[in-house]
Each structure stands twice: as C-alpha cells, then as structure tokens.
Design a protein around this nucleic acid. Structure first.
Lengths: 188, 188
DNA sequence: GCTCACAGCCATACGCCGTATGGTAGCGTC
DNA sequence: GACGCTACCATACGGCGTATGGCTGTGAGC
C-alpha cells in the first residue's frame, strides 16, 4: 500500500479533517494551508489529495461535520420561552466551540443551506407553540435565526469585552427582546 | 516626477481605492489582488505601495470610506418606531450597495470599531425615546445592532430568495419583532 | 543655469500558496 | 510472475504579497 515513509500508519480522512479543524481553531480559516496541514501530519502536501478533492471540499466537509454536532435540546414540555432560550444557548455554545469556523460558515451560508436540519424543525415547533401563524413560520424563523447568528457573531469575535457576566447579560437582553417581540402572537 | 510610462497622469489614492472597491464589488474581497489592481490601473504592482502601506491598509481605508457614506436619517420628530425602522432601512441600503465589502466588514469588526459613529448616537437617541433605561442603553443597542447585521448578512448573501416582496416582508417581520420587543420598556 | 533632494515609478526576487501532472512502492489476485 | 490498485511522493506552474534597490523627471535653492 505504500504507506508514508515518515509515518507508520496510513492517512485517514478523519485524521485529516480533525487536524485541519484544529489548525482553523488556532489560526482561522485563512491560517489553514494544505502545506501546513501536510507538515502537521508528516506527509507530502500532495498526499492529502488522495483523500480530499480540494481545499474547498475539505472545508465543506469540516463544516458539515461540526454542523451535525449541535446539541439541540429536546422538547421537554416547558414553556416556549424557556425552550427558545435553551435553543439559542445551545447554538451559542456550538458556535463558541469553533469560533473561526463558525464565522466562516456564517459568512458563506451557501456552504450548507440544508433547511432540513433539526435546528429548523425545533425552531418551527417552538414558534408554533408561541402562536406564530403557519404562513408566518418560515419568515419568522428566518428572522430569529438571523438575529441569533448576528448576536453570536458579534460575541464570538470578541467585539464586546470578554467579561462572561456581561456576555450573559447581553444574551439575556437579546432573548428577552425576542420573547417580548413574539409575545404579541400568543396574546391573541 | 517620473509619471508612469504607461499612463499620462500620476496615480492617486482616490483612484486606487475606488478601483479596488470596484474589484471587490465584482469579485469579493478574496478576488482582489494587488497585482490585478495594478493591471487594472496600468501600473506596476509595486507602484501601489507608494500610496498604500499594504493590502490590509488599503482594505481598511476602503472600509472607513464607505462607512462614512451611510445616510443616517435625521431626527424628524416621528415616533421612535418609525425612526428605528428608517435607521434599519438606511443600514440595509448601505450594506446592499457593497455586499462583499459589507460581509467582510461584518466578519472582521475589529477593522472599524469606532463607537463614536453617528449610527450609534442615532440608535441611542431612538432607544431613549423608546424608554430604554440609561444603564441598559449600551447592551440594548449592541443587541439591536447585532440583530440587524445578522438579518442584513443573511439577505445580502442571497440565502433567501431574491424576490423583493419577500425581502420586504422579512424585513417587516424583523422590525416588528424588534419594536414589539422594545415595547415593554415604553409600557412602563 | 546648476545642483540636488525627493517623489513617483519600476524590475527583480523571495517565500508563500493551491494543485496539475506523472511518477513509484508495496499489496492482493490470478 | 504479471497485473492492477491504493497510497504516497517529486517536480513544476502560475498565482499571491511585498522587501529591496534602482531609475527618472521635477522643482526648490542658490
């Protein structure tokens, strides 16, 4: 099989993508290069191309992988306000775990525009509980998703001071704004 | 002065930055290269460096320039709800005029973090009219700004269909959500 | 009118990048 | 032993940002 002279074991896709993700975490997406990645893996740059079609494809793969790792809270029967908050928090934690990748993903939504993801289903369910009428569901969930991603992006980039208390308060303000904004639906 | 052999007139900073902005509009920030820019200006790549310290500095310059072109609506005495909407629309139009640059700016907020900008002052004013208490102003404006940028980013990237009607409706939904969210302040 | 500093421009080169092309080493199968 | 296949690699091409150092024409000072 002609395993690399410099390594004992053969390369795997998993090893490539996890190392790439680590490099991205450390130096941003711009900080990732196929050559650095190869060096990190003790391998010739061109060897990577036997497992991955291109750098772009690798990045898409990584995006898809981490996208599936969001820990969506299940329907626990609590009021929709609590569930909305829990969902936002889950999304935030997810973004926090790989800030650079998140920012890139948010700036290139064409990479993954899979609307069938669990997160959308969950959001729909919560909004229905909040009394949002069916024809407004799509629009409202788009808007809320945009709101939350905007908020997370702002915080993930440390545009705001790093004080965790302040972050939590800002998050609270945002969630309250959204909940109050939705309240007019359930009032009917 | 040794004007370029290939051009009649000397290069100007204005000419450089406006051409660069055009290239960015056409091909995204990644599509801009100092070499292409020089070719576009009929000039040697290194000539640019007599007017600009680096590519990064050029991009920062462009960001700062267009940032000053937002047409902030003046205080016209109308209710804060209308003014908030007008501000959001102005911001949206601004983003629309240079989508690629906007996306880049939004993904790298450290480029311009000038909080003294008119937009913040305007937002503060409107929020005061809405009854937001002074200690909450900073947080609330941060959140609203994040909301709007999130929304705009989503739309600017065409993640949503291009139908202008649908865009307008989504925008309406968002503005109503924010206004309703803030209403709890003025209710007091 | 002469000198000289300097602004404006350019040629060359270095070290990065992604990746096309065309190998080569070792394995399993017949 | 021939063959194909998988995994890996060497070399090379065209792009990038920009450091370095040189050229040239202009205008100020005398």
């Amino acid at each position: 099989m002609a395993v690399s002279a410099r390594r004992g074991t053969p390369l795997t896709l998993e090893e490539i993508s996890s190392t790439a993700l680590r490099l991205i975490d450390e130096g941003g997406v711009e900080g990732l290069s196929m050559r650095k990645l190869a060096a990190e893996l003790n391998v010739n740059p061109m060897s990577l191309y036997h497992h991955v079609a291109s750098k772009d494809a690798l990045i898409r793969l990584i995006c898809a992988t981490i996208q599936q790792r969001v820990r969506i809270p299940p329907d626990d029967g609590t009021p929709w306000q609590d569930q909305l908050r829990a969902l936002a928090v889950a999304y935030y934690r997810h973004a926090r775990s790989h800030p650079a990748m998140w920012t890139h993903l948010h700036a290139h939504p064409e990479i993954i525009e899979d609307r069938t993801l669990v997160i959308w289903a969950t959001l729909y369910r919560i909004l229905r509980q909040a009394g949002v009428p069916e024809p407004e569901l799509r629009r409202t969930s788009d808007v809320l998703h945009a709101f939350v991603t905007g908020l997370i992006t702002t915080e993930v980039q440390g545009h705001v001071p790093d004080d965790p208390d302040e972050t939590a308060r800002t998050f609270d303000t945002a969630v309250h704004l959204m909940i109050n904004g939705l309240a007019s639906y359930s009032a009917r």
